[in-house]
Simulated assay, not measured.
Amino acid sequence: MSGQALHEPFEDLERQRLAAAFGMWIFLATEILFFGSAFLAFSVYRQLHPEGMLAAARETNIVLGSVNTAILLASSVTMAVADKAAEQMRKRETILCLALTAAFGLGFLVVKLFEYREDIAERLVPGPHFALKEPGAQLFFGFYWVMTGIHAIHLTIGIVIVLITIWRIRRGSLAYGRSGFLPSLGLYWHLVDVVWIFLFPLLYLGARA
């Protein structure tokens, strides 16, 4: 059974797609405000404690950070191709590219878990046993854990939605090529990638320039 593309209260597909896109842009704006505020706070404290923040930044694993950057960039490509395939009603290619997108997302989380394990082993978690003594170093890793943790949560949500979307397309309950759902999902996924593009230089490259 094919999924119905048009849903109440919309009278045509174009208005439905515009409404979906507008709603997603409103949501993305709130996310940008949140992460923008975090980036601004990080920049302010970096000016207040430059030596400690830079010393802490040199402890981040630039190799794993770079690998994860490449993984997320690849996931953006596969998501864009999935959206294009859906427009052309190519079901097989749509499912394949969405599956690759979810796989890249899971790969990112696995690499990040290895990095977190390394950070914990090296006592880079803020607290009484924190390894670095420079003023501001704990503050850096406070930002690091909060911002990368929230980013990982957003990515996990995206992966779950992508997997549900694959399931719905396979069973025919989602009119993937006409409803405007996939473009909205793509916007969310690309936002998660863009946030990481800002986090990577902020947390990994700043002390190594």
Rank of each mutant, 00 (worst) to 15 (best):
G3C: 15
A5G: 04
A5S: 06
L6T: 08
P9W: 02
F10V: 01
F10L: 01
L13C: 03
E14Q: 08
R15E: 06
R15G: 15
Q16V: 00
Q16M: 15
L18F: 09
A20V: 05
A21V: 15
W25A: 08
F27E: 10
F27V: 11
F27M: 15
T30L: 09
E31C: 14
L33S: 04
F35N: 05
F35S: 03
A38P: 00
A38D: 06
F39K: 01
F39D: 00
F39Y: 02
A41K: 05
S43L: 09
Y45P: 00
Y45I: 07
R46F: 03
R46I: 13
L48S: 07
P50C: 05
P50D: 11
P50V: 15
M53C: 12
L54N: 10
A55L: 03
A56P: 07
R58Q: 14
N61V: 14
I62D: 12
L64E: 00
G65D: 12
S66T: 13
S66K: 04
N68P: 00
N68R: 06
T69P: 07
A70F: 14
I71N: 13
L73Y: 06
L73Q: 11
S75E: 08
S75A: 14
S76H: 08
V81P: 10
V81G: 06
D83M: 14
K84Q: 10
A86H: 14
A86D: 09
Q88Y: 07
E93M: 15
T94F: 15
I95Q: 12
L96A: 07
C97R: 13
L98P: 04
A99I: 15
T101V: 04
T101L: 03
A103F: 01
F108P: 14
F108Y: 15
F108E: 13
K112W: 12
L113S: 15
L113C: 13
F114V: 09
E115N: 09
Y116L: 12
I120P: 05
A121K: 10
L124E: 05
P126I: 09
P126W: 14
F130S: 02
K133Y: 14
P135F: 04
G136M: 08
G136Q: 12
A137Y: 03
A137T: 08
Q138Y: 02
L139Y: 10
L139K: 02
F140I: 07
F141I: 02
G142Y: 00
G142V: 12
G142N: 02
W145A: 11
W145K: 00
W145P: 13
V146T: 02
M147L: 06
I150D: 00
I150V: 11
I150F: 02
A152Q: 04
A152E: 12
I153C: 11
I153S: 08
H154M: 15
L155W: 03
I157Y: 13
V160P: 07
V162Y: 03
T165D: 00
R168F: 04
I169A: 13
I169Y: 08
R171P: 02
G172Q: 06
L174N: 02
L174Y: 04
L174H: 06
Y176H: 10
G177F: 09
R178F: 08
L185N: 02
G186D: 08
Y188N: 05
Y188T: 03
V192I: 11
V192G: 12
D193L: 01
V194S: 03
V195S: 04
I197E: 03
L199V: 09
L202P: 03
Y204F: 14
A207S: 12
A207D: 10
A207N: 15
